[in-house]
Design a protein around this nucleic acid. Structure first.
Lengths: 93, 93
DNA sequence: TTATTTGGTTTATATTATAAACTACTTTAT
DNA sequence: ATAAAGTAGTTTATAATATAAACCAAATAA
């Protein structure tokens, strides 16, 4: 049986990737709301995705407020698609 | 976003359920080979699935040798199908 | 009879996920 | 101007999970 990429096989990280696959970019606050996660948990999981090279995290400003935006990388896109393929073999899809 | 049943969202338990969804029953040794897991890990995960009511585990004999066979329950079947539906929303399927 | 293999379970450890506590800065109210 | 409250996160401590190593009992082979 195929291996399921452990970086993606986590509810919150998968949710984040799922969102990022369908948008240009998304910021921390948006991801937090959409996934209904706590800030701390989200922060940790974004780090993991970032360290894996699956997303880029950019810290910028909107006026005086900080804004952290995330984008999926090409590597992340590929990993996500491979994960989907692997999962399909488990789910009979 | 939908919750992913944490009992099923585990590679090994999902693999076991995936196998059991497609056969009448399967024994410990078969599951161990198919999933390429260690006996200890498999034992623990079968317990969890069993305690959740997703499978039944029956200890019997074949001649003088013990044989542990597993079957998915109706509850397990339902949970698996709900899990698949929830996952689909993450994977754009 | 004593190894060895088979079929597991239990227990200890490593990894992961999560939440709570904290930091730094901004906005609002007094 | 200053205190109080909010915003946007990070760090750290704890709980939960996964995994492997050690163990056990029965059967078979040497």
């Amino acid at each position: 049986m195929k291996e399921l990429d452990p970086i993606l096989h986590s509810q919150l990280r998968l949710a984040v990737m799922s969102i990022l696959m369908n948008v240009e970019e998304a910021d921390f606050v948006y991801l937090k709301e959409k996934t209904e996660s706590t800030a701390g948990n989200l922060s940790v999981q974004l780090d993991k995705l970032s360290n894996a090279g699956y997303i880029t995290v950019t810290k910028g400003f909107v006026g005086k407020k900080t804004r952290t935006t995330c984008q999926v990388t090409e590597q992340g896109r590929k990993a996500f698609e491979e994960y989907v393929e692997a999962l399909k073999s488990y789910l009979n899809l």
